[in-house]
Design a protein around this nucleic acid. Structure first.
Lengths: 129, 129
DNA sequence: TTCGTATAGGTACATCTGTACGTAATTGTA
DNA sequence: TACAATTACGTACAGATGTACCTATACGAA
């Protein structure tokens, strides 16, 4: 497993846009990023270059254009990031993190039920080994 | 609400030690930090200075010694940090985050039950307004 | 064919972060 | 009392990060 440098906040924002688009030129990705943040075209470009250097994105050429696409998927990055935070804030105690989440963010009845169903589902699959 | 610069990873490590100790000299905090990480005394000292500058810690004098203690509590920082991550990774969708957490980290039966009880408790308190 | 607009690629630069060293003063101990 | 250890405080410095500008080129529209 290649040990890649971590993503900074800005890099993550841009990476998320790439994941959503699957693939695109700097322009397209800049547009996608702009739907939620304001970030200069050049800034997006810089992040894309850095993301490629760090091994998170790859590029292919389409005539004179460069098409960026993901090399490392969202899932992997999210897993890593979340695990890291759980470690650093809750000493790796997932339950403590979930506890914090559901208490801090008021959930409505529907959300609570969704989570209850999720837990029931998991209960059936516990690996008791 | 004072808008403080965010904590970096290293700063957070040291801040956590201060929270655990409530208060202490650089030496004491260094020792506490050392229980989990290896970090040079001077490095801890630097982080403490920066934490004070950023407004997260305060100091009082005890003779020739400086006693560091928290000015911003663990709860506040954790809340901020978690909210920020939920925002950046899941567009603020807490349920998505919890979903990810419980699926990625295998929970055992006891943990699942703990969470179920937690949800049942919250269900009784939903603010339906 | 000319001109505006994307694009690529290079470069810049202040600030933040991780990680420490050096020096001076103080204090407990041999 | 002299020395070792502790502490405070100033300073250092490379690499990461946020944020962008500049220049050259290619492409589509007029």
């Amino acid at each position: 497993m290649a040990k890649r440098p971590e993503l900074s906040k800005g890099e993550l924002t841009v990476a998320r846009a790439v994941w959503r688009l699957e693939a695109g030129t700097v322009g397209a990705i800049h547009q996608e990023v702009s739907r939620s943040s304001e970030m200069d075209y050049s800034t997006v470009q810089t992040y894309l270059r850095r993301l490629e250097t760090k091994g998170y994105l790859r590029t292919r050429r389409d005539g004179r254009n460069k098409i960026y696409s993901a090399k490392v998927g969202a899932g992997q990055v999210i897993r890593h990031t979340v695990r890291d935070l759980v470690q650093r804030l809750f000493d790796g105690e997932v339950v403590a993190m979930v506890n914090h989440l559901v208490r801090d963010h008021k959930l409505n009845r529907t959300e609570i039920q969704q989570l209850q169903e999720l837990l029931t589902e998991l209960e059936g699959k516990v690996d008791e080994s």
